[in-house]
Simulated assay, not measured.
Amino acid sequence: MSLDGKVAIVTGSGRGLGLAYAQELARRGASVVVNDVDARATADAVAAIEASGGRAVAVTAPVGPTETAQELVSTAVAHFGRLDILVTNAGVLRDTVLWKMTDDDFDTVVTVHLRGTFTTVREAVRHMRQADAGGRIICIGSPTGQRGTFGQTNYAAAKAGIVGMVRTWALELKRAGITANTVVPVAATAMTATVPYFAAAVRAEAAGEPMPAFFRHDLGFGTAADVAGLV
């Protein structure tokens, strides 16, 4: 699939799965706006993409505020002239059981995941509809939002909410030629590295070794490259 001439924004793409998405989009020919809260991570991501022959620019800012969404879209248009693709991937964790979860624990996760997805997609869609050239909205969900996970009330609520928003957007944006989809990755990441059940698979991925067959074949647990290909 060639993405030559296309322009993409990937939030939370300084490292991990987000970086894999940004690198794969760039490898396919898209120019990419990289986003993270860590300036060093965004700079390194841009450098890695450019070293491989791609085009990228960084926006270092937390998602959630409307101002960040506006900056992401305006940067894409100013540097590359258009916007075709948005991947909302940025996220944080504040894990603890319900009776110990603070208001800040809840609000921080919901602000980044749920509000960040809403504000960024809203701004991107406003531009895409005005440009009248269609577009692709891809929002990253989680198995936690579908099944729940002990200690993740905030994260489960946010990820389930993203799926609900995307189902609605798919209906609302159809006439404008803009597709909206959620991808729910089950892969070796910094987040799954904290889950003992996945430890052997994550260690293998980090070492550049094949994952044990049980994880890939029985659980459908994969790598960042697997998910990036789908995105």
Rank of each mutant, 00 (worst) to 15 (best):
T144M: 05
Y21K: 00
D218E: 14
N89R: 11
P62N: 05
A48V: 02
F106C: 11
E67K: 10
T111I: 02
P143A: 01
F221V: 10
Q70R: 13
D104N: 12
R216D: 04
G177N: 09
A47D: 14
A157C: 12
T11D: 06
R175A: 15
P65S: 04
V33C: 04
M191T: 09
G229K: 14
G220L: 07
A158L: 08
I140D: 01
A20G: 08
I9W: 09
Q70L: 05
L17H: 12
M191P: 05
A56C: 12
E24Y: 06
L93T: 15
L72P: 07
A224L: 15
P143N: 03
V184C: 12
V46F: 02
S52P: 01
G5E: 04
T223N: 02
A47N: 14
H217A: 14
A199N: 07
R27N: 11
R147V: 11
G54Y: 01
C139F: 02
A133D: 13
Q23T: 13
E50Q: 14
R27K: 15
K174F: 03
V163F: 00
T223W: 00
G141N: 04
T189E: 01
A41T: 01
V195H: 05
A56H: 12
K6G: 12
N35M: 08
A39R: 15
V163R: 12
A39E: 14
E50T: 15
R203I: 02
Q130F: 07
A204N: 07
A69T: 02
A187P: 06
A48H: 02
M128K: 10
A158T: 10
A170S: 13
P212S: 00
G220K: 04
V186M: 14
V166D: 02
T149N: 15
V33L: 02
G151V: 07
T68A: 00
M1I: 11
F80Y: 13
G12H: 06
A213H: 03
V37H: 06
D36W: 03
T11I: 11
E123I: 09
F215A: 06
K100Q: 08
V92Y: 03
R27Y: 01
A124K: 05
V184S: 12
A201S: 08
S2N: 10
I140W: 02
A20V: 11
I137K: 06
K100D: 12
Y197A: 13
G12W: 04
I9E: 03
G91W: 04
T68F: 00
R94K: 14
D103W: 10
L230K: 07
T119L: 01
A133R: 15
A131Q: 12
K174P: 00
V97H: 10
A90H: 04
V10Y: 03
A190Q: 13
A190N: 14
V186W: 10
A156R: 10
E50Y: 00
G5H: 06
G135R: 11
H79Y: 00
V7D: 05
H127P: 10
L114R: 10
H217E: 15
T108P: 04
M165F: 08
Q152M: 05
R82G: 08
G14C: 12
V227T: 12
A187D: 02
V186F: 11
A30E: 06
G16E: 03
E50W: 00
E209D: 09
A160T: 10
G145P: 11
A69N: 01
A90F: 08
G220F: 05
R175E: 14
R122A: 10
A48G: 04
D84M: 03
G54Q: 06
A188G: 04
